[in-house]
Amino acid sequence: QQPIVIKFSHVVAQDTPKGLAAEFFAKRAGELTKGKVKVEVYANSTLYKDKEEVEALQVGAVQMLAPSLAKFGPLGAKEFEVFDLPYIFDDYKDLHAVTQGKVGQELMAKLEPRGIKGLAFWDNGFKVFSANNPMKKPEDLKGKKFRIQSSKVLEEQMRTLGALPQALAFSEVYQALQTGVVDGQENPYSNIYTQKMHEVQSHITETNHGYLGYAVIVNKKFWDGLPADVRGQLEQAMKEATDYANSIAKKKNDEDKKAIIASGKTQVYVPTAAERLAFKKALVPVHKKMESRIGADIIKQVYDATGFDPSKL
């Protein structure tokens, strides 16, 4: 009997946390279903590119993807932009309370009318600021040009700090920093290290102000059409892959932070509790400003899940 083939396409290299987790899922899916399912992983955009993969999944041309959460806003699920809000999560505990809890499920449900079934959230990590000047307080970012991912929420975040957002493709960031097209940027340590950004930035402040992550999604029609036992086994494989993905993402960020410090090219500054609070106070107003776009309801639900109360800040 022919195995059921799941084409799992992604846009990053094989040896990144996401790439490794995809391979891990492929292996476990084969084992748990006893060969009834064969997961073919296509790395590096060989099958579909960043811009087209979600639409390809919707028409059923590919079964499984792990796009960055930023992809769901343009799809019409603006609620997903909640993940771009600065200081919406204080730490991994807050984050997982949302992604692995009821709110996460409700967010994934927003994708179903669009023919997509969300299976899991995979972490990349928390973002830090890098620039060519020390940043101990929010005012230190004022007037600087910061590269952001194309996102209306991140644009507002930078404007709130008095900085000037410039949306640039990820692949262009290194050169833009090197030539001074922009002064700074925000990313998790692992992205900074793999793109060698620390070579052209003198300072990093570990603000951990924002989150970068992925969602593993499948074509809904395909998923609902699977035999129930197979679906259960795949869910188990996905659960294991998610734990694996999150743990290696965290490990990679920790390792790359050490490597950046060891390189001696960038000073890594960990703000004190009071300094971090100042950043948080400066940035939390972005939540209110973006309320009409993202939805007050979803922001409130996240607050409830994490126990955050902006009025008590």
Binding site: V54, E55, G73, P74, L75, G76, P113, G115, S150, A167
Partner: peptide, 13 residues
């Protein structure tokens, strides 16, 4: 019923 408004482009929306 069951129709979906479709995606937008990221920058120009």
């Amino acid at each position: 019923d069951g129709l979906y408004e479709g995606p937008t482009t990221p920058d120009l929306e």
